[in-house]
């Protein structure tokens, strides 16, 4: 007992975990698993209500598939840049990591910008959030996704800033990878939404 000194501090390097996965990564996977059910619930709600257009116009009158396709493509490209960021981080190439992070954030912002445009246009075409069950569930679903993308953009930009200021606590490459996991998840969710919401009723 006497020769045991307790003090604050991390053991050098990482804890050796039982599964070999890092704690952070495992936690992120679990969180994303939980998010799957969140979007599952929202998508089910939309699927139940998409035909109930009530007093307002319906999806076939509103959706601009070519535009949404470009949006989807932009978001997919952002996954590519995210992969490049993770790669750069693994090679400890800070400059390129930052570059790709910012590029990902820019593409994400463009996606959100396009969504804001789409929402504004829809509103003027006759559906507000409260117009019909279809509109409420559509805006809720895509809005939740948009918020997820926005949070992702914030994380990307903050991470880039933290790398610049050298303020990443812990492993830089892992931090980038974690944000990357989140980003890819948001991307995959969009692919599902794009297919189920935009393409199927067409």
């Amino acid at each position: 007992m006497a020769d045991t000194a307790v003090h604050a501090g991390h053991e050098s390097g990482h804890h050796v975990t039982t599964t070999g996965l890092s704690n952070n990564k495992l936690a992120m996977w679990l969180f994303l698993g939980s998010e799957c059910l969140l979007f599952g619930g929202l998508i089910s709600t939309y699927m139940l209500y998409r035909g109930r257009t009530g007093d307002g116009p319906g999806p076939n009158q509103l959706f601009d598939i070519p535009l949404t396709s470009i949006s989807s493509f932009v978001l997919l490209m952002s996954s590519l840049t995210m992969v490049l960021a993770v790669n750069s981080a693994k090679r400890k190439d800070d400059a390129n990591t930052k570059l790709w992070l910012v590029a990902t954030a820019l593409l994400g912002s463009l996606f959100v910008g396009a969504q804001v445009y789409e929402f504004t246009a829809f509103y003027q075409e006759g559906i507000g959030f409260t117009t019909s069950l279809f509109s409420s569930s559509f805006f809720t679903l895509t809005g939740f996704h948009g918020v997820h993308v926005s949070i992702g953009v914030l994380m990307l930009l903050a991470l880039a800033a933290m790398i610049t200021r050298n303020r990443v606590a812990g492993d830089k490459a892992e931090a980038v990878e974690l944000v990357g996991l989140y980003w890819h998840f948001v991307d995959v969710v969009w692919v599902v939404i794009f297919t189920l919401v935009y393409l199927i009723p067409a």
């Binding site: 954030a105 820019l106 463009l110 959100v112 804001v116 953009v153 914030l154 930009l157 903050a158």
Partner: peptide, 20 residues
């Protein structure tokens, strides 16, 4: 960090959506 990030995001989103 968050405020600047949000400002950047907001600026892009605003400008781009107005353009569209």
């Amino acid at each position: 960090f968050p405020v600047l990030g949000a400002l950047a995001l907001g600026a892009i989103v605003y400008a781009f959506s107005r353009l569209m």
